[in-house]
Design a protein around this nucleic acid. Structure first.
Lengths: 363, 363
DNA sequence: GTTGGCGGTTCAATAATCGATCCACTACCC
DNA sequence: GGGTAGTGGATCGATTATTGAACCGCCAAC
């Protein structure tokens, strides 16, 4: 039968993959070779050697540029729900996400293991583009998780999941008319509060640095910020909003356009802690001091902010409690509890730092 | 999932032999190694590696000139079924550790789960104090892990573990006369290289910001840095070293003492990415620009450094490959593999950033 | 004593595996 | 239509596991 040596890693993988195939784990397409090599803990070369054996058995058919198609026995097996895994969707490698996000995902992993679930992390850039249907179809088809957790999700993604009945939880805010269970910080309240803090200190020209392709949380932030300024008793207060993408240059550019205005703002709210770093260092390059020349507030928290001088005023979040809330909502979904309305918002505590003070006199 | 610890042939054979032993196939003596090698279709060396594992579990006892005696039919199921957990010791809540450390611990957790182990994180501040014996006694007594991973470990901790025979792996450097398996970056080479880079750029007055209560890696760093300056062809080059603790104020103080010297350095090597943040922001407060007025190099890497302007020159590490190395050494310890020499050092790649340039003229 | 079988050790050659980097192709976004 | 990002296909050198074959000292039996 097998002329191939039985003890090589490649052959072991082939056996394993054959089992998964007959079990019907993957329908349509196999995960990409690069993903398999990660999940199976083997190099792509070895995975390819294993796939070669499956190909010889006509179980799969590789298609250039597309993937490995499952060709054999399409078992109409009823869904195996015993998988007991949960998928979490992230847009970037976890190392590039903000540490706080990595932390609560980590906690989530631990908590789910206690509950008997494994958390699988899927880095799917394609799923975050304007039309993610195909990528999502493929991803969800390839991985039969009991539920999905969406982080940093786009509107299109949320709509896709809302249409299908795939069990999912949005770790973040949902867009207005999308009825998905979700859990997030209350960014609207946060930014309204931030505007209030700055106005009370005497600032009148405020600015918000926000993400360009805006997620629901960013939209909420902007609304809250504008509300905070509009509804203040100070009729002369103005709010400017500048948009940036996720790269450093883009943040620097957005910041410069704001600073180069005729009447530059004396206080900034930055919606992202990485952007806060970029902002602070660009200000330093321009010779502007925080908070004497300009006040800063960070909407997001992250541990590294504590190492800055002066320490940024920000809204602090405990990743542990956040993860616990998430896992609570998730278990409701997994157990199909009667109440599908597991949505809530958390209002974190404001930590005043040295990065805010009264505006410079004469401004 | 994967029942085989380390997909090597030797480990597969060990599993097979263990099964035969519990089945009672052989009473008294095992077949000779040469016979086994023939029947199992593996070389004698490989068979011997498998037998080594059985010996470590006290299932067999080799006798020179006679053979391998079956010694204890004590159900290995119990041995195998023992907790199967690994403890990792950290000094602070994981959220306060640097993101890169959290990342590789996270990867380590995943890799170990794949191998059938659970990783338990123990935050033991007491274990990092000058006399950790009591705290360690208690901790190790309370948790019967198969092995321990020590991060950011102190000399006293290492000595304690070296005295006891608790299986442990130092994720970091060991102190000179301590013989524990360890894995770390080669800080000595890193700092020697950093000094060389700055000297080549034309700097002559260099400084290193280092931790006050120095871990082995910090000691190595200092040695490498001094070496790099001493052994340079530039006789007029000088190296200053300033010490700080982990808090922001302490870093700021150390930095100020260096800057207030009669001939302040024109280039700084900072040994910690949090300290880099503090340093950069204190320099900004004093109106010093990077790199025009002072050049900076970060010894440690962390993802958030990429958001700074200018981007810090630093030594980049991939948390995934670091975790893989750690788990490799760890499995050697866990399986009691024949090679106890699992010590190595990794030399990360230098990423030149915008934070270095030639010194200001006339300095 | 001599002999032959045993485990213990070393060694170089071979094979498997890894990691990294190309390529050509497809699909999709802009 | 061009750019980008993902796919399988292919190749490279470096590393590692495995092999096969020596040699050693030890043991018991002839």
């Amino acid at each position: 039968m097998t002329l191939i040596p039985h003890r090589t890693v490649a052959s072991q993988l082939a056996v394993q993959l054959r089992a998964e195939l007959t079990k019907g784990t993957w329908r349509g397409w196999l995960p990409s070779e690069r993903v398999l090599s990660r999940t199976l803990q083997a190099s792509r070369n070895t995975v390819r050697a294993a796939l070669e054996q499956l190909k010889a058995d006509s179980l799969i058919e590789p298609v250039r540029g597309l993937g490995n198609r499952v060709v054999g026995t399409a078992k109409p097996a009823i869904v195996e729900h015993q998988t007991r895994t949960v998928g979490v969707l992230i847009p970037e490698p976890i190392g590039h996400l903000r540490p706080l996000i990595a932390l609560w995902i980590d906690e989530l992993k631990d908590l789910l293991i206690e509950e008997g679930y494994r958390l699988r992390i899927h880095e799917g850039r394609q799923c975050y583009q304007t039309n993610p249907a195909r990528a999502l179809d493929r991803l969800i088809g390839q991985h039969a998780h009991s539920a999905w957790v969406l982080t940093l999700s786009s509107e299109a993604m949320q709509r896709w999941f809302a249409r299908r009945n795939t069990p999912c939880l949005v770790a973040g805010s949902t867009y207005p008319d999308i009825a998905l269970p979700h859990y997030d910080l209350d960014y609207r309240a946060i930014c309204r509060h931030a505007a209030g803090v700055l106005l009370r200190l005497g600032h009148r020209r405020l600015a918000l640095l926000n993400r360009e392709s805006r997620r629901a949380g960013d939209v909420d932030s902007e609304r809250g910020f504008v509300e905070g300024v509009r509804r203040s008793p100070h009729r002369d207060a103005t709010a400017v909003i500048a948009y940036h993408r996720d790269d450093v240059d883009s943040v620097a550019r957005a910041l410069r356009t704001v600073l180069d205005r005729k009447n530059p703002p004396t206080a900034l709210v930055v919606s992202n802690s990485y952007a806060y770093l970029s902002t602070a260092s660009v200000l330093a390059q321009r010779g502007l001091r925080v908070p004497q020349d300009i006040a800063l507030i960070s909407r997001d928290d992250d541990p590294f902010l504590a190492s800055l001088v002066p320490e940024p005023a920000r809204y602090r979040v405990d990743p542990h409690s956040f993860a616990k809330k998430i896992v609570g909502s998730l278990l409701q979904i997994l157990n199909r509890s009667p109440s599908p309305r597991s949505s809530a918002a958390l209002l974190p505590k404001f930590a005043a730092g040295g990065s805010t003070s009264a505006p410079p006199t004469g401004s």
